[in-house]
């Protein structure tokens, strides 16, 4: 009988470590290279000449960048508030009730934006606003984008909040009622504080999804409603300078920071 030196590691599978490290490399190498070249002092995107913050200066000084950043923040913040508030209410209204006939339908409606390919949502929203503008003469300007973003942010905000409510120990709310808390007080003092991490991560997801959106924004946006992703898209079609790397890096950093913060909140509360 063969004898082995160390006991069998039952969890080990040969080669899996290599694949995992390879995936990590593949996922990060392109973005890291993109980021590194944002510090290139030369004006050719792929030719390294030296370290400088020159292109960040150029990017930030650009008026178009300013207005794109402003639009992006207005849309993302408003859509985040709208979607988080409605998603929180919906999550409570769909977990703290006796099951009723429309529950499954409501659940499917709220999650619909996740199931429809983004390009379809984009052209559908475009058609909708075109029709509203054509037949009713209503054009909300940037409001159109806020509405479109709120719709697809709702399921992203909804998921973590609902998950948190479902994981919550129902006896805690019963204990509050047992200790003379009215339903409102039980919600205010027990359910809501325990729901905060879920709401925060819902907010973070909604914000990122809106902040990063390109497809829907590109089709729905009217003239002068450029957001940061659209601004980058416009830059790609011109002769490229490391300015585009600098703007891309800024966008990536926003995503990374928001993800990291929501990750830390989730971990601290666990």
């Amino acid at each position: 009988m063969a004898k082995t030196r160390a006991p069998l590691d039952t969890k080990e599978q040969p080669g899996f470590r290599g694949v995992a490290l390879f995936c990590l490399f593949v996922l990060y190498a392109p973005i890291l290279i993109l980021m590194i070249f944002s510090f290139n002092s030369g004006s050719i995107v792929t030719h390294w000449e030296g370290v400088s913050l020159h292109w960040y200066g150029t990017a930030i000084a650009n008026d178009d960048f300013h207005s794109a950043a402003k639009n992006t923040m207005i849309i993302a913040i408003t859509a985040t508030i709208v979607s988080t508030v409605t998603a929180t209410l919906a999550a409570i209204g769909m977990t703290r009730v006796k099951p009723w006939k429309g529950l499954m339908t409501a659940f499917m409606v709220i999650n619909l934006p996740l199931m429809v390919p983004e390009i379809v949502t984009a052209i559908a929203t475009l058609s909708f606003f075109a029709l509203v503008a054509g037949k009713l003469g209503i054009n909300l300007g940037i409001g159109n984008l806020i509405i479109a973003h709120s719709v697809f942010c709702i399921p992203f905000a909804y998921m973590p909040i609902r998950a948190r409510l479902e994981d919550m120990d129902l006896t805690l709310e019963q204990a509050a009622a047992d200790l003379y808390a009215t339903p409102w007080h039980a919600f205010r003092r027990v359910t809501l504080p325990l729901l905060v991490p879920g709401i925060l991560s819902g907010m973070a997801l909604a914000f990122i999804v809106s902040f990063d959106d390109f497809t829907i924004t590109q089709l729905v946006a009217g003239p002068g409603q450029t957001t940061l992703p659209l601004y980058i898209w416009n830059q790609i079609r011109r002769p490229m300078t490391p300015e585009i790397n600098a703007i891309s890096t800024i966008l990536l950093m926003v995503s990374i920071i928001v993800v990291a913060i929501s990750f830390l909140i989730a971990r601290k509360r666990r």
Binding site: L172, Q174, A176, A177, Y180, P193
Partner: peptide
């Protein structure tokens, strides 16, 4: 009567202490 109107209190099986 709802539980919050009864002068009766409960010790729950899993204690149900408020974690926050």
């Amino acid at each position: 009567l709802p539980p919050y109107k009864r002068p009766i209190n409960t010790v729950f099986q899993n204690y149900a202490l408020f974690p926050h």
